[in-house]
């Protein structure tokens, strides 16, 4: 019979090996995929959730704060958590920070290809980012590799010399960039809303054509509403905001949409306006 002795309390994890201990350790590994985490971070950042804690300098527009905080979060997640795919997502948003941190860049570059293999060229644009990430990797750290086609069948003298390595590298350049990733388009659109709303709107339309059922549909629509509002096309902005609200009644962007429109959105969007 166990006694209640708080001073002498150990976790099962610290005790002798047992089945329960093994199950507990495994259960700790349950976590969202890196893709899921980056989607949540991007949405929370876009919703301005991270902005309130950022130093609010001279009361600048909330949108800018949101975008800045979003970049910072993705960057911190990428370098702090070290998630491969997350690093890839963050690459687009945080290229400048990327340049400043060569040590982290290297560790992430090593992680990147494996993750990309597992997740495949997802909507978050791993393919394009892998290309960029793989480039800075120094040749000296690469294990000599010869492609199967180049293995000698009758000539035993051929080994993986440095010239072979160079040849292999030059013969397999990074895969050509596919079309711009979903995340990159939305990021560019968000960045352009304030300076050039027309361009932001174009990017939103581009996203709508390329990713009609993408992961960032809500983000695209928010950008479109903001851009339309800034262009003075209030009626279009409002109908688009209502459409978003109809399709995603629990969207976290209501506040942002209302801010863009300058008026509250009615909870039942079927009645236009109020």
């Amino acid at each position: 019979m166990m006694k209640l002795d708080p001073t002498n309390l150990h976790r099962i994890d610290e005790g002798p090996p047992s089945k329960l201990q093994r199950l507990i350790r495994r259960s700790r590994r349950r976590r969202p995929s890196t893709d899921a985490t980056s989607r949540m971070a991007a949405r929370l950042a876009s919703a301005g959730v991270f902005a309130a804690e950022a130093p609010t300098s001279s009361g600048g527009p909330a949108l800018l704060d949101g975008v800045r905080a979003g970049g910072a979060t993705l960057r911190r997640l990428a370098f702090g958590v070290g998630g491969g795919a997350l690093a890839l997502v963050a690459l687009g948003a945080a290229w400048s920070a990327w340049q400043e941190r060569p040590a982290d860049r290297m560790s992430d570059a090593v992680v990147a290809p494996t993750t990309a293999d597992r997740t495949g060229p997802s909507a978050l644009g791993t393919t394009a980012a892998v290309d960029s990430a793989a480039v800075p990797q120094p040749l000296s750290t690469i294990v000599p590799v010869v492609s199967v086609d180049e293995l000698p069948s009758t000539r035993p003298g051929l080994v993986a010399t440095s010239s072979t390595r160079t040849e292999v590298r030059s013969s397999s350049p990074p895969a050509p960039r596919r079309s711009e990733s979903e995340f990159a388009i939305i990021k560019r659109a968000q960045d352009a809303v304030l300076s050039s709303p027309a361009q932001a709107l174009d990017l939103a339309e581009q996203h709508a054509r390329a990713f009609p059922t993408g992961e960032l549909v809500q983000e695209r629509e928010v950008v479109a509403v903001e851009a339309l509002a800034r262009l003075g096309r209030k009626a279009e902005a409002k109908s688009r905001a209502n459409a978003l609200l109809t399709r995603y009644p629990r969207t976290p962007y209501v506040v942002r949409l209302e801010r863009a429109l300058g008026e509250p959105l009615s909870p039942a969007p079927s009645t236009s306006g109020r």
Binding site: R30, R31, T73, R76
Partner: peptide
């Protein structure tokens, strides 16, 4: 901040919601 909490606790929240 919330951002910091998210970074450090997102796995915790996820597991517990499950």
């Amino acid at each position: 901040g919330i951002e910091e909490l998210f970074t450090s606790c997102v796995d915790f929240v996820w597991r517990n919601l499950y």
